[in-house]
């Protein structure tokens, strides 16, 4: 096990914990950003350079920035929600996630010896996209349609403001 692997794992775990358990939402957004960057580092470590670049570009650069943006617009610190959670709900929540973690860990533990590490012959951008544009071209086209639909949907939803009719 390499030093870098352990370092990345520890960092990812720390930032993920901060994401979930931080009281301030802006801090959890920044922690999510760092988690995503660390996952990008893991991709690099696993040999898929292109995916790590995409991860930083899309997830850390665009998705996380949207979160930070919205959190700064909606300042939750000003309107705190003080309703108490019922104890039983909390226990069930923790139990659910612990059980699922246990099951997953058990599955991984039972199969970890059979997992091999294959050196990818060619994980360059060209090899990846050769496959994307031949075998996967229909999902790819559908994904572009999905993105277009998302853009249109966001514009429609954001413009749907009856109190202040915006200029067209």
């Amino acid at each position: 096990m390499m030093f870098v692997d352990v370092l990345l794992t520890v960092l990812t775990v720390a930032f993920a914990l901060l994401t979930v358990f931080s009281k301030k939402t802006v801090i959890s957004a920044f922690a999510l950003l760092m988690t995503l960057v660390c996952i990008g580092g893991i991709y690099y470590q696993l040999g898929s350079v292109f995916l790590s670049a995409i991860q930083v570009l899309v997830n850390a650069g665009a998705v996380a920035i949207l979160f930070v943006f919205v959190m700064m617009l909606i300042d939750l610190e000003k309107y705190p929600n003080n309703t108490e959670r019922s104890k039983i709900k909390l226990i069930i929540t923790v139990l659910t996630s612990l059980v699922s973690l246990g099951v997953l860990a058990l599955i991984i533990n039972n199969n970890i010896d059979t997992i091999t590490v294959v050196n990818l012959s060619d994980s360059s951008m060209k090899a990846l996209f050769d496959r994307l544009f031949t075998q996967y071209y229909i999902p790819f086209e559908l994904a572009t349609v999905l993105l277009l639909a998302a853009v249109v949907a966001v514009v429609v939803i954001a413009n749907n403001n009856k109190q202040h009719p915006g200029k067209e």
Binding site: M1, D5, V6, T9, T12, V13, A16, L17, T19, V20, T35, I42, L46, T93, V94, T96, S97, L98, S100, L101, L104, A105, I108, I112, I115
Partner: peptide
């Protein structure tokens, strides 16, 4: 192999 556990951990933390 540590990354397999990491991905399971991330998923369950997100679920929580």
């Amino acid at each position: 192999s540590i990354y397999y556990y990491l991905s399971a951990f991330l998923f369950c933390l997100g679920l929580l």
